[in-house]
């Protein structure tokens, strides 16, 4: 089933706000927790208490530093950006088309890219094909693991309506993760992308990711001389003048 659908009715995915993410890794462990108990086989951890612990995670948070080109003023400080990354549920998902067994597929109804673990032979080719590192071959079970967009939560009738969203979105303390339908221009995610200039990762790879990232807002504008804040005007340089001002000011109170 590794032919990609011509189009999908919905395009479900995430918006991740890089201006708000504090890099707390909450989305990482809640994802790990949910997916260890739910969809497919558990996510394994090898050598969990040993010298080289290595486990499967479907969502990982990187931290980058960005050094703006110095532009006059007091120079520009480096910025830290926390950067969560999971599957982007690409429209032109190369991971799907390379899969020989048909285990990888993109759902017609909502565009979620999934692995049917019962069909996966663990060749790893799809992980090679994904530019984003969104797939990890689980060493215990030998099958490919990836973000399911919590397909077993978002429609789950055993969950209260308000909980039918991905585990990582539900848990994010800063509210930096948003879930919704990008096919609907009125959805929360479409609007956020519109308002904040949401972008794709590595567009040159031609994968047409569904997930979008919101850029950090402009920072450190007070470092440069051409900011528009003026310093305060002094009413007095010394206490005497100040107390005089005070008397007049108090008269008004």
């Amino acid at each position: 089933m590794t032919q990609l659908p011509q189009s999908t009715a919905k395009k479900l995915g995430l918006v991740i706000d890089l201006d708000t993410c504090v890099g707390c890794h909450a989305c990482v462990t809640s994802c790990k927790g949910w997916n260890t108990e739910n969809y497919g086989v558990p996510l394994s951890d090898d050598d969990a208490y040993g010298a080289n612990p290595i486990g499967t995670f479907l969502n990982r948070v990187h931290s980058f530093e960005v050094q703006p080109e110095a532009t006059g003023g007091c120079g520009s400080s480096a910025q830290t950006v926390h950067f969560p990354k999971s599957c982007l549920h690409c429209d032109d998902a190369p991971c799907v088309t390379v899969c020989p067994t048909g285990a990888s597929y993109k759902r017609q109804e909502d565009g979620i890219v999934l692995v049917d673990e019962d069909a996966c032979m663990g060749c790893g080719l799809c992980a090679w094909a994904c530019p984003y590192g969104a797939r990890e071959l689980d060493s215990d079970s030998g099958v490919m693991k990836k973000c399911t967009l919590c397909v077993d939560r978002i429609y789950n009738e055993n969950l209260p309506e308000e909980d039918r969203q991905p585990a990582c979105v539900r848990t994010c303390p800063a509210g930096a993760r948003h879930f919704g339908d990008f096919a609907d221009p009125e959805s929360n995610v479409s609007k956020l992308v519109e308002e904040r200039g949401g972008f794709e990762l590595m567009p040159e790879q031609g994968t047409k990711p569904v997930n979008r990232y919101l850029p950090p807002r402009k920072k450190d504008s007070w470092d440069s001389a051409n900011n528009n804040v003026l310093p305060l005007n002094a009413i007095s340089q010394e206490p005497k003048g100040f107390l005089k001002w005070l008397d007049s000011a108090l008269g008004k109170v």
């Binding site: 993410c21 910025q79 807002r217 920072k219 450190d220």
Partner: peptide, 14 residues
């Protein structure tokens, strides 16, 4: 240090 909460601060005073 500019990490965590300070990473998302609009103005960083190091």
């Amino acid at each position: 240090i500019r990490s965590g909460y300070n990473a998302i601060a609009d103005e960083w005073v190091g």
